[in-house]
Design a protein around this nucleic acid. Structure first.
Length: 967
RNA sequence: GCGGGGGUACCCGAGCAUGGUCAAAGGGGGCGGGUUUAGGUCCCGUUGGCGAAGGCCUGCGUGGGUUCAAAUCCCACCCCCCGCCCCA
């Protein structure tokens, strides 16, 4: 099967049957998947996303749409860059990872090692994996047009991004300002998660501390806190006597903070000049002024104070901060000058909160049995608990300027008040505090002054984003809320960095547009890629791009040329100043394919890329070019575990499609889970699916091998009708299932259920003269039905069946007549009866034969049908019984009415019946099947005219519920 | 905290929108049987309890409620997972 699959892939891609060409006589369908970021090989998760979109693409193609399903490669940003950096530095961890990655493709060790060496240049990483990505994807057989591929580092792509960013700038959606980032001072650069040791496992946050300045002579002791509202309850100031502090000029003032803090602050947009070092001990005993109250506070020693957190200066609020309370108690037990001061201090409660007394911190310290400030774990827990309770349900007391105000609000007011007094500032810290780059250097927060932002919150932008979102279909629809909340909080978003691959910001070329910002409207670029990739054209656009960037946008001539080209192509505005003929063709193609009909993606992109995708379309394109729908699927896990590099259990796509036929991989990922759910790649279950696929292959080939005797006229027997009906029903249902992205149901119906049906039919085929013709016809329709799902095997079988056309390009079959489900229901009764009989056999033990009495009087069928419809109308038991006993039609079986109604209402009897003829016929035809399943001989009797009425069972037969006698 | 999703049998997992045919699909695992020199594969059956005739009892996170009828609808509670920005 593997070999057959490869053969068809070669055939498809060699003949280029999936290449999209403008054809105005046919409706178009433009489907895209986010271009993969090529820092490594694709894995089975990509396989899921691509398979699902390919099922859609293939169905649409068979339905007569001109389908475009393109792909490209994303290389922008810092991850590839930092891999290159790490390889250059000889990082062993990354090297072994890439030995594995490269080893997937290159078996020769030396060769592989040479390739990894070349990865010191990030472009080589991108090129290597982009190339292999294409091969790997092709092994899955997707109907992708690979001729439009590009990378985001191509010169013509840069020219396109330049156009996009000038458009956004014209609209006023780009801003510049201050911004905090994670930063490694020793390396002199901002770092991303992938640059941080353990960065993929931990969740790194940036915390904002409030700084409060306590005047001490002409200097300020600067304390850091998360709870500025507690300033009114401050009783003293804590300093760690063992730590090193500094006196430093900060923005024209003299601050006293820890040495560590001064270092950090110097990166946070502050002018910091250290004058001298001071030991913590020297500061003890001095008095500083609380800026909020004017009272003097002593500086006292506390060991819990960490000079690497905040400023190393803490103002003490023993009533509300467990650490402070514990430290105060500790100190009060010491027999010295500071102990005496501590004993004189009484906590000041300033917040009222239910469940606590006047000093909540004292309560919780007592409750949790905390002994001293050394009890860090418990104290941190206590701090968290108090914070939560006070923040959400606490109210300020009368001894503060904000009596009765909720803590959450008082917080802001306190900041306001301190600000007005010039006693407030801000400082950032990371959480967790101590994080390091992979090179081992400390990471802190730095504030950048001239960061470029996209202002998604712009009053002319956000409403349009909302409008675009509203106009789109989101499937599964449960994700719509996620989009809505993303759009709600979208505001200023940095769009450029100083490191990494990508296009430089054309008017400020120190900056590189980052990867989530240069990947928002590139689907438009697919439509024109064929035209602009051409050597000469590419050269022209590339040169213009580099002139614009090189001149920081001041080369107006180049800029105008570039902008005029894309303005014309994408917006139909003005006339192109360059390449008019190319522009005309590109324009034509863009106008044909756009907008994007469907964008299919993993759910991880909802909160960023997909929302930006909507936003940028809304900003730049007219409404009729806005995307039509977004569809999503969840991740893939493996044997119950998350796939992650650190666990080493990532399943590369090539390994999956190298070991199994591609159709099996497709079948598995499409069937195993609904889109919303995690898909578990379980090795055991993969084997099960494979065995079903083999059965399919065997059955299909058996049908093909049967000599085809033409039979012009035949009357299909009930089983034949049943089989053809089933496939017709599935053919009818599949398009709407796939449109609604109910892929799993489509697979269940079309593959698994159909396979079961045909296996049953095969048991009967020898008794049915028309079976061969029926089976061939069935197979023809079935192959069409399955082609989107498993294109390789169906393509092969299609040809073995004697067709010379390409199944992938065949028309979908729309059944000529409405399939009836009466036959199906009749067959369903047979199978239910088999289950019943089996249970009886089990209880009875041994049996020679089973007698089944089918088909009571037509009168009874009528009655049951009538009861059923009355129940459906919602009548109650009494009413139905009264009505029917009065009905002359049923006068002969009056006495059975109450019992039947009762049993049908309670669900003991099936409500959904067929007529007598169909039911009898089903039992006659399926007798063989019953015997095989039950392992004993089966005798079917007409209940109205039984050959022998064993055990008086004939009279017990009911519609849809034959009676059974075991002998 | 806010927003979203979820708790179903030994395990994974469907069902819930449209209540009844649900002791609850499918798979894994277990058990029994067949094939096999053996093992694996494969095939069949079984896997809440009771039952000598198709039935009864218990049962879908916990506790209530609506209904002739609840895994499914309503209310409250407990627990779990995911997202919450400059990272692709």
């Amino acid at each position: 099967m593997l070999e057959i699959s490869r053969r068809w892939q070669e055939e498809w891609y060699f003949r280029g049957i999936f290449e999209g060409r403008v054809d105005n006589s046919r409706p178009k369908f433009f489907i895209t998947v986010p271009y993969p970021y090529v820092q490594g090989p694709p894995h089975i998760g990509h396989g899921r996303t691509f398979t699902i979109s390919d099922i859609v693409a293939r169905l649409k193609r068979m339905q007569g749409y001109n389908v475009l399903f393109p792909i490209a490669w994303h290389i922008t940003g810092t991850p590839i860059q930092s891999v290159a950096d790490r390889i250059s530095k000889g990082d062993a961890e990354i090297r072994s990872l890439y030995e594995w990655y490269v080893g997937i493709y290159v078996k020769d060790k030396e060769e592989a090692s040479r390739i990894i060496e070349s990865f010191k240049d990030p472009w080589n990483i991108a090129k290597f994996f982009a190339g292999h990505y294409e091969e790997d994807l092709k092994m899955l057989g997707p109907s992708i047009d690979f001729t439009r591929q590009f990378t985001t580092g191509d010169p013509e792509y840069s020219s396109f991004i330049i156009w996009q960013y000038y458009k956004l700038r014209e609209l006023g959606f780009i801003a510049q300002g201050k911004h905090s980032v994670l930063f490694a001072p020793a390396e002199g650069q901002a770092v991303g998660e992938h640059d941080i040791r353990g960065g993929d496992e931990i969740n790194i946050e940036m915390l904002e501390f409030n700084l409060v300045k306590f005047r001490w002579g002409d200097k300020h002791l600067v304390a850091a806190t998360f709870r500025p509202e507690t300033i009114f309850g401050a009783t003293n100031i804590w300093i760690n006597p063992a730590a090193t502090y500094v006196e430093a000029r900060v923005n024209g003032e003299t601050w006293i903070v820890s040495k560590q803090a001064a270092w950090k602050l110097s990166y946070q947009d502050k002018e910091v000049k250290v004058i001298r070092e001071v030991s913590g001990r020297e500061l003890l005993g001095v008095q500083a002024v609380n800026p909020a109250t004017g009272s003097f506070l002593y500086v006292l020693p506390a060991s819990f104070v960490d000079d690497d957190t905040g400023t190393g200066v803490v103002y003490s609020v023993p009533a509300h901060a467990p650490f402070d309370y514990a430290a105060l108690m500790d100190l009060a037990g010491v027999d010295d000058e500071f102990g005496r001061i501590a004993r004189s201090i009484s906590p000041v409660g300033i917040i009222r909160v239910e469940g606590y007394g006047e000093w909540p911190a004292a309560d919780i310290v007592g409750r949790m049995g905390i002994r001293s400030q050394g009890d860090r774990g418990k104290l941190e827990e206590a701090t968290k608990a108090i914070y939560r309770d006070e923040y959400y349900s606490g109210v300020m007391r009368d001894n503060t300027p904000f009596p009765g105000i909720k803590v959450s609000e008082a917080k802001e007011r306190a900041v306001q008040l301190l600000r007005e007094k010039g006693a407030w500032d801000i400082m950032y810290e990371t959480e967790p505090r101590l994080i390091y780059t992979r090179g081992g250097n400390r990471v802190i927060v730095a504030v950048i002054r001239d960061q470029w932002f996209l202002n998604y919150g712009h009053p002319e932008w956000k409403p349009k984003i909302r409008e675009a979102l509203e106009s789109m279909k989101i499937i599964p629809s449960s994700y719509r809320v996620n989009f809505e909340s993303t759009v709600n909080w979208l505001g200023m978003r940095p769009c450029a960095r100083k490191r990494g691959l990508g296009t430089r910001l054309p008017w400020d070329n120190e900056w590189i547009i980052e990867s989530l910002s240069d990947s928002t409207i590139y689907m438009a670029f697919y439509t024109v890629a064929r035209h602009v990739k051409d050597g000469e054209v590419s050269k022209v656009l590339g040169e213009l791009a580099s002139k614009v960037i090189g001149s920081n946008g001041s080369d107006e001539d180049s800029l105008n040329k570039l902008l005029s080209f894309y303005d014309y192509v994408f917006l139909g505005k003005g006339q192109p100043l360059i390449l008019p003929e190319v522009a005309r063709r590109a324009r034509e193609e863009f106008s044909y394919w756009y907008p994007v009909d469907q964008r299919h993606s993993g759910i991880d992109l909802v909160g960023n890329h997909l929302s930006f995708f909507i936003a940028h379309h809304a900003a730049i394109f007219p409404r009729e070019m806005w995307p039509r729908s977004i569809t999503l699927n969840n991740f893939v896990i493996r044997n119950g575990q998350k796939m992650s590099r650190s666990l080493g259990n990532v399943l590369p796509l090539r390994e999956a499609v190298g070991n199994y036929p591609p159709d099996m991989v497709r079948l598995y990922v499409a069937y195993e889970a609904d889109l919303e759910n995690l898909l578990d790649w379980k090795d055991k279950e993969v084997a099960v699916v494979l065995s079903r696929l083999i059965t399919f292959w065997r059955v299909a080939n058996e049908i093909i091998s049967m000599p085809a005797e033409p039979m012009s006229e035949y009357k299909p027997s009930l089983p034949s009708e049943w089989l053809l009906n089933s496939v017709d029903k599935a053919l009818l249902a599949a398009p709407s299932l796939i449109d609604g992205m109910r892929i799993r149901e489509y697979v269940l119906d079309s593959f698994f259920n159909m396979l079961n049906a045909v296996e049953v039919y095969m048991e009967l085929k020898d008794e049915l003269p028309e079976s061969k013709v029926v089976l061939r016809e069935f197979l023809r329709r079935w192959l069409v039905l399955l082609s989107p799902l498993m294109p390789h095997l169906t393509e092969e079988l299609w040809h073995r069946l004697g067709n010379s056309s390409m199944l992938s390009l065949e028309q979908w079959i729309v059944p000529a007549r409405e399939p009836s489900d009466a036959v199906e229901r009749a067959v369903g009764i047979v199978f239910r009866t088999i289950d019943d009989a089996r249970e009886l056999l089990r209880i009875k033990g041994k049996a020679n034969s089973i007698h089944i009495y089918v088909g009571p009087s037509n009168e009874l069928y009528d009655l049951v049908r009538t009861i059923s419809s009355k129940i459906a109308e919602g009548r109650d038991v009494g009413a139905i019984i009264r009505e029917l006993t009065g009905d002359p039609r049923f006068s002969g079986i009056k006495q059975r009415i109450p019992d039947l109604v009762r049993r049908m209402i309670s669900g003991q009897l099936p409500r959904d019946v067929v007529d007598r003829e169909a039911e009898m016929s089903a039992f006659k035809y399926f007798k063989r099947v019953m015997e095989r399943r039950l392992g004993v001989s089966v005798v079917i009797h007409d209940a109205l005219n039984p050959g022998s009425d064993l055990g008086g069972k004939a009279r017990a037969a009911l519609p849809g519920r034959p009676s059974i006698f075991i002998e």
